[in-house]
């Protein structure tokens, strides 16, 4: 998506969100009032509650839409990426079906980056859910966190400054993507999951999160050969826990001196 298109989309999303939030407040309030008048446990009460939850899902969608359009300033914090991976572990095992083997790996020592912790968790879960949906016949999915050092061509290819990055990679052995699908994967509302399958906001949210954190989302895939999606985030050194350090991370500033 071109930068000016993204900006126009953000403009539109911001304008509509305000009115939609008003509308949802009314729907939620009216439904909640109905539910209060109905006997808990009755079919009608359940219907009202389903309606309320649907409205709340709508509210969540608006929040994601705004995040995807990059108009919502993220809450940046220095976070331990390994702990973040550990935090999604239980949920990931619940999300992934039994016919898929799931492997999650993160280094034992902490890896720090500066990002919105909720955004990171959402991004990792989005990648895992996409991998699951792309693996309908069973197979394997892995999530791995590690550090890489980018120089010259490697950095330019990802439009990133040379430096040390924490990389979260989700691989699957699923159906893969065509070059056309890959090209459009991060467009808001683009989905291959059909009208009831997805919102088309998953990868666009992940892409938005990576950019907001000064990083990049890289996609590699071939039809029938699975996919590899990697979120690159600039590594932060805990010795200088300031935002400036994100811009110029150096290889030797890790306290233990060990970078893989």
């Amino acid at each position: 998506m071109a930068a000016n298109d993204r900006e126009a989309f953000g403009e539109m999303a911001g304008g509509i969100a305000h009115d939609l939030n008003n509308l949802l407040t009314v729907i939620m309030g009216a439904t909640e009032t109905l539910a209060e008048d109905l006997a808990p446990g009755s079919d009608r009460h359940d219907l009202a509650m389903t309606s309320l939850q649907a409205a709340e899902t709508g509210a969540e969608l608006i929040r994601r839409l705004l995040a995807a359009s990059q108009r919502q300033a993220p809450e940046l914090e220095i976070i331990d990426c390994c702990a973040a991976v550990d935090a999604v572990r239980p949920l990931a095992h619940r999300l992934i079906r039994d016919d898929i083997s799931l492997k999650i790996q993160a280094p034992v020592h902490p890896l720090f980056c500066t990002a919105d912790p909720v955004g990171l968790k959402t991004a990792l879960l989005n990648l895992l859910i996409n991998a699951r949906d792309a693996t309908p016949a069973g197979g394997s999915i892995s999530l791995r966190a590690e550090t890489v050092s980018l120089h010259g061509h490697g950095a330019r290819r990802l439009s990133l400054a040379p430096g040390v990055y924490v990389v979260f990679t989700v691989r699957d052995t699923g159906v893969g993507m065509s070059p056309e699908t890959m090209r459009r994967a991060t467009e808001p509302f683009f989905t291959t999951k059909g009208p009831v399958g997805g919102t088309g906001l998953g990868l666009s949210t992940v892409d938005g999160f990576a950019r907001q954190s000064g990083g990049h989302l890289a996609i590699a895939s071939e039809v029938g050969r699975g996919a590899r999606l990697s979120i690159y985030l600039p590594r932060t050194t805990p010795l200088k826990p300031r935002l400036e350090s994100v811009a110029n991370p150096t290889r030797n500033d890790w306290p233990g001196g060990e970078i893989r």
Partner: peptide, 9 residues
């Protein structure tokens, strides 16, 4: 506030 703008929050 219904937010919706970068300053909404």
């Amino acid at each position: 506030s219904g937010g919706g703008h970068i300053v909404g929050r």
